[in-house]
């Protein structure tokens, strides 16, 4: 089993990278995940496996990652700070590495209030920044979070983090990204971009500080099925900006699904051609995984590079 992450190789080679997202199911069958993975196999370089997203209980991201890996795609294991203390985190990460996972995305995680167990006790023993820093130390300094040496076979993860250019305070978002890079983040996936203008301003600040030279930034995009979905995100999802024009465009469309895909494809092309410093795109087709191949193809990102 190769030690090097395929995602890292593609990004380091300077090619415009494509990642997607597979949400594990709310049951114990891997059939759906395998189906999605096989379908996306040739179209993406890696896929994120979400970790109980929106705090709804789903199949473990690491277990789902094994199914995805066996179906031919490299997984990016998401790990939130909500559900595990530092002991469980490290234990799970050692296990994940042993199972062939090479990429980890570190996030705070949605608050449990939004999920199906709102009365749960959250953990937040460690925050995403600290998780990044300590994962890097595991790899580079061969130590556990407590400082004790890892005597052999330290996990050598390719470490990812998230950035949300649409959250506040806007001025601090680039600072925080820099902080994550300083902590050890090697790739960044952004929150879904709908407000392109704000993302461009964000990237301008990123380039001013040379952060695009220090970390691989993948721009997050999400195809929307209907204006209702867009409007929901606009009003109910914190840290998300959806311009009215976009909602209107979907509202006026004869075939809203088609329109949603077209918007997404336009966004990808725009990001790839017009915004400097972006190294790839992260397609979050939430509960709509089957459209990923089409989006990739029509955005001119097919075929994907081959890596050993």
């Amino acid at each position: 089993m190769s030690n090097l992450s395929k995602l890292q190789q593609v990004l380091d080679s300077g090619q415009f990278t494509v990642t997607a997202e597979i949400g594990p199911p709310k049951h114990s069958s891997a059939e759906g995940i395998r189906h999605h993975a096989e379908m996306m196999q040739d179209y993406v370089d890696a896929t994120n496996i979400t970790d109980n997203q929106t705090a709804i209980v789903r199949m473990s991201s690491i277990a789902a990652g094994v199914h995805v890996l066996n179906s031919g795609i490299e997984p990016i294991i998401q790990m939130t700070c909500r559900d595990r203390n530092r002991i469980a985190m490290q234990s799970d990460l050692l296990g994940a590495y042993s199972l062939g996972m090479r990429n980890v995305l570190c996030l705070s995680g949605d608050h449990q209030k939004f999920g199906n167990h709102p009365t749960a006790k959250n953990v937040y023993d460690v925050d995403s920044m600290q998780l990044i820093e300590n994962l890097r130390r595991m790899r580079d300094e061969k130590v556990f979070f407590c400082g004790e040496a890892i005597k052999e076979a330290e996990p050598q993860f390719f470490i990812g983090a998230v950035a949300n250019p649409f959250a506040d305070p806007f001025e601090f978002r680039v600072d925080r990204l820099e902080k994550k890079v300083n902590a050890g983040a090697q790739f960044i996936q952004t929150q879904c971009i709908f407000d392109m203008e704000r993302f461009e301003r964000f990237m301008e600040m990123v380039r001013e500080r040379g952060l695009d030279q220090r970390v691989h930034i993948l721009a997050g995009v999400t195809p929307m099925k209907s204006w209702r979905a867009a409007s929901y995100m606009q009003n109910n999802v914190s840290g998300m900006i959806v311009p009215d024009e976009l909602v209107e465009r979907l509202k006026n469309a004869e075939d809203p699904k088609r329109e949603g895909l077209d918007i997404c494809i336009e966004q990808i092309k725009y990001i790839k051609e017009k915004i400097k410093g972006v190294h790839g795109v992260h397609i979050m087709a939430i509960a709509w995984e089957e459209v990923v191949p089409e989006i990739v193809e029509k955005s001119g990102l097919y075929p994907r590079p081959k890596v050993d």
Binding site: C81, R82, S108, G109, D110, H111, K113, F114, N122, Y124, D127, S128, M129, Q130, V162, A163, N164, F166, A167, D168, P169, F172, R176, K179, Q191, S238, G239
Partner: peptide, 19 residues
């Protein structure tokens, strides 16, 4: 709401918490 020591997380908008 998340006891984050290196905040703010991505859920902060218009000065308010996602919760």
């Amino acid at each position: 709401s998340k006891s984050i020591l290196n905040g703010p997380c991505g859920g902060s908008q218009h000065g308010k918490c996602e919760v």
